[in-house]
Design a protein around this nucleic acid. Sequence first.
DNA 1: CCAGACGTTGTT
DNA 2: GTCTGG
DNA 3: CCAGACGTTGTT
DNA 4: GTCTGG
Length: 227
Amino acid sequence: MCGRFTQLCSWQEVHRFLNLTGPALELRPRYNVAPGQDAAAVRADHGERRLSILRWGLIPAWSRTPNIAYRLINARAETAATKPAFRAAYRSRRCLIPADGFYEWARHGATRQPYLIGRKDGSTMAFAGLWEQWRVREGIKLPRSLAELAPGETLETCTILTTAANETVAPVHERMPVILPAESFDAWLGGGAVELGPCPAHEIVGRAVGTWVNKASNEGPEAMEKP
DNA sequence: CCAGACGTTGTT
DNA sequence: GTCTGG
DNA sequence: CCAGACGTTGTT
DNA sequence: GTCTGG
């Protein structure tokens, strides 16, 4: 699956990779993006590619409460097109989520060892994602983390597609994020048919990191350090 | 017709 | 919103 | 994903 | 056990 990742890239680096339009944003490097936090994502908008900030954890537009979000941080690529929670977004609200690495936890009995996985040269990848808009309804009780939202306001959320692990990731975990090749970017954002399987195993590499990353409020480069 | 679910992961 | 179950 | 909380009443 | 927060 994909429950944490890094976004070290600047807007300019994402622009080089994904050919963005629109004004540049000031992005701070993120060493430990966790569910419920804001993350940078790229969406097609009238033929342009804009980078925006979405909250990770998808809330379907029809959802009565936002509490479902923490379970919808991932969508299975095999079924997202038809599942009620995802199919509308799959049709018309797709995004690319730039990431330089993702964390997976290997379970050896009671212990959990985090690994950081990414391209050998550390360059930026693009996860396949979906996004949604959720409008705060009158009279609903919001969790503290969303308490600043007023009724009528709109929250934009996203989820990361997952697929079977390739041979690099399999020793650590059964699932991994869908990492799209550059030739699929247009088709994905445009709503076309795209192969959503695991990326070739030789394109990525993993290494163990310390458990400092476990705590989501730990945000520094220490997250990537060896155990 | 209305009511109720709608999801992933990992663990049991 | 839309589908399934009753 | 993992870590940490998980409750009420009344008073400050 | 289950939910919220990060």
